[in-house]
Amino acid sequence: MSGIALSRLAQERKAWRKDHPFGFVAVPTKNPDGTMNLMNWECAIPGKKGTPWEGGLFKLRMLFKDDYPSSPPKCKFEPPLFHPNVYPSGTVCLSILEEDKDWRPAITIKQILLGIQELLNEPNIQDPAQAEAYTIYCQNRVEYEKRVRAQAKKFAPS
């Protein structure tokens, strides 16, 4: 494992614990031996107030490669969400998460999670990743928002 990646992720964890947006979660997972795995984080993004996503808490896994922060983490909703920019596998399609697009090593975990929260309610229809959600979003916004509200209710924190 890269010392650069681990040191950056340790800084990220410290900064997150000191200050993070209300309702968001970002925690490194534990290895079988109980030690912390900084390369694999369990996160959760709350649906934004005043949107059909409100009330939901959407679980996301963030996986970092050894060359982080040169390369972005892979962000994957578990379980996958109904959304035009979420692949059926759950992987998020967002330009700041793509090395050859808008990724920059200075982007923080907090910025990534806030960017994904923004994307939930403002899909990028130029870059669809899920045919069904994309089609319904474009053709029947009322039905799309109904499905999103049902999903938010399903993923409401207990």
Results as ranks from 00 to 15, higher is better:
117 Q>Y: 09
110 K>F: 04
34 G>L: 06
137 Y>S: 03
158 S>K: 08
134 Y>P: 05
128 P>Q: 02
81 L>F: 07
52 P>D: 11
150 A>Q: 15
89 S>P: 10
56 G>I: 02
141 R>L: 10
57 L>G: 06
134 Y>L: 04
90 G>S: 03
74 K>M: 15
146 K>L: 10
81 L>Y: 02
148 V>P: 05
71 S>C: 11
26 A>M: 02
5 A>H: 15
63 L>I: 12
104 R>G: 03
75 C>M: 11
30 K>D: 06
140 N>A: 15
111 Q>G: 15
34 G>S: 06
17 R>E: 03
59 K>D: 08
87 Y>M: 08
104 R>P: 00
140 N>L: 02
98 E>C: 06
97 L>E: 05
57 L>C: 12
19 D>N: 07
47 G>K: 03
87 Y>S: 01
132 E>K: 07
71 S>T: 10
40 N>Y: 09
85 N>P: 02
65 K>I: 14
120 L>Y: 07
56 G>L: 02
87 Y>C: 02
123 P>S: 02
126 Q>I: 12
54 E>S: 12
69 P>V: 04
52 P>G: 14
86 V>W: 03
99 E>R: 10
68 Y>N: 01
121 N>W: 09
75 C>L: 15
143 E>S: 13
154 K>H: 09
115 G>S: 01
87 Y>I: 08
105 P>I: 07
84 P>A: 12
38 L>F: 10
41 W>I: 04
128 P>H: 02
122 E>I: 08
142 V>M: 13
102 D>W: 10
85 N>W: 03
114 L>M: 13
66 D>N: 10
85 N>F: 09
8 R>K: 00
27 V>N: 08
138 C>Q: 11
45 I>H: 00
25 V>G: 06
133 A>N: 01
112 I>H: 12
148 V>D: 00
19 D>S: 04
76 K>C: 11
76 K>R: 14
79 P>I: 15
72 P>D: 05
144 Y>H: 03
88 P>W: 06
143 E>T: 07
50 G>E: 14
30 K>G: 08
44 A>W: 08
114 L>C: 13
66 D>G: 11
14 K>H: 05
17 R>A: 01
65 K>D: 05
154 K>E: 11
115 G>E: 04
19 D>R: 04
105 P>Q: 03
95 S>G: 02
61 R>P: 09
87 Y>F: 14
140 N>G: 03
152 A>W: 04
16 W>Q: 04
17 R>P: 03
55 G>T: 05
11 Q>E: 11
44 A>G: 14
23 G>R: 04
141 R>S: 08
145 E>R: 14
135 T>G: 06
123 P>N: 01
9 L>F: 00
31 N>Q: 10
